[in-house]
């Protein structure tokens, strides 16, 4: 069983996102371990991009901080290699297509396999354009995580059926960021997705409180939280470990269910 699928076997999964290199890679490395101990089941590592069009201001600014601190794709691979010596937590990259394309698809995914990255999410790579990437992610056994959105409608089925790792359900229209209310009819999207998908279904975008997490985890296999964590890092910088740990523990507790 893959590390990603394993993460969903223990009950509802809490998937934590942070931008690698914000404020520096040493802090990111520390935070990955901290979040794992606090109950995170999967960690999504953002490879910073200069122009992240699917992100709201919180993650945009994190990307800029990471780039300013000299973060490169190569240094992130080195960090993953260090993490893998001590931890088996599933690690999933989140980045835009251009940094992957420039690195070279073959070298990028070969490196993912070598250092122990489990999957990748590319928000500006829709289903129709996946083939050029999948040729190489598939070659090295890296899961290419697909997204479905509230506007996907008749596309949900085909995307879900081909999904790898987990299916990322975008909770709301718009960019990433903290939302006080999620108005989308998530249940009907998740029902269609679960019917077609062979992989777990996780929901992200906008989730930040334990109450939201608890509610959504009733219908999804996992929840994904990014901006709320990145905001804590923005406020606490290198001293983020403690507040991030506390936050993750609270969120995990909210979605905890006994093994069925």
């Amino acid at each position: 069983m893959s590390r990603i699928l394993g993460a969903f076997k223990k009950g509802k999964a809490f998937i934590a996102f942070l931008t690698a290199g914000d404020p520096d890679l040493k802090t990111t490395e520390k935070l990955v371990f901290k979040m794992e101990r606090a109950g995170a089941d999967i960690v999504e590592l953002g490879i910073p991009f200069s122009d992240p069009i699917a992100e709201g201001p919180v993650i945009q600014e994190a990307d800029l901080r990471a780039l300013e601190s000299g973060t490169t794709t190569g240094k992130i691979f080195d960090m993953v290699r260090r993490i893998r010596k001590k931890s088996q937590i599933p690690l999933v990259f989140l980045t835009y297509i251009n940094p992957v394309f420039r690195y070279g698809y073959d070298s990028f995914f070969a490196k993912c396999k070598e250092v122990g990255v489990d999957g990748i999410i590319i928000p500006d790579l829709p289903f129709e354009e996946q083939a050029e990437v999948h040729e190489f992610s598939g070659k090295y056994g890296i899961d290419l995580v697909s997204l479905v959105a509230p506007t996907s409608e008749d596309r949900i089925k085909k995307i879900a059926a081909a999904a790898e790792g987990y299916l990322y359900v975008v909770s709301s229209l718009g960019v990433t960021g903290i939302r006080t209310e999620i108005k989308t009819d998530l249940k009907s999207i998740i029902d269609v997705a679960k019917e077609a998908a062979k992989v777990p279904v996780a929901v992200g975008f906008g989730i930040n409180t334990p109450e939201q997490a608890a509610k959504i985890s009733k219908i999804a296999d996992g929840i994904i939280v990014g901006s709320a964590i990145v905001k804590i890092i923005a406020e606490n910088g290198r001293d983020s470990a403690k507040p991030v740990g506390e936050y993750v523990r609270g969120m995990k507790k909210a979605i905890f269910t006994k093994k069925p």
Binding site: E129, D154, V170
Partner: peptide, 22 residues
């Protein structure tokens, strides 16, 4: 591969949220 290519260039590299619309 999505439509709209000029040689190797072009394509539709956009978030899923916009795909139905486009």
């Amino acid at each position: 591969m999505a439509s709209g290519r000029f040689g190797i260039h072009g394509g539709q590299y956009i978030p899923e949220t916009l795909m139905n619309e486009i």
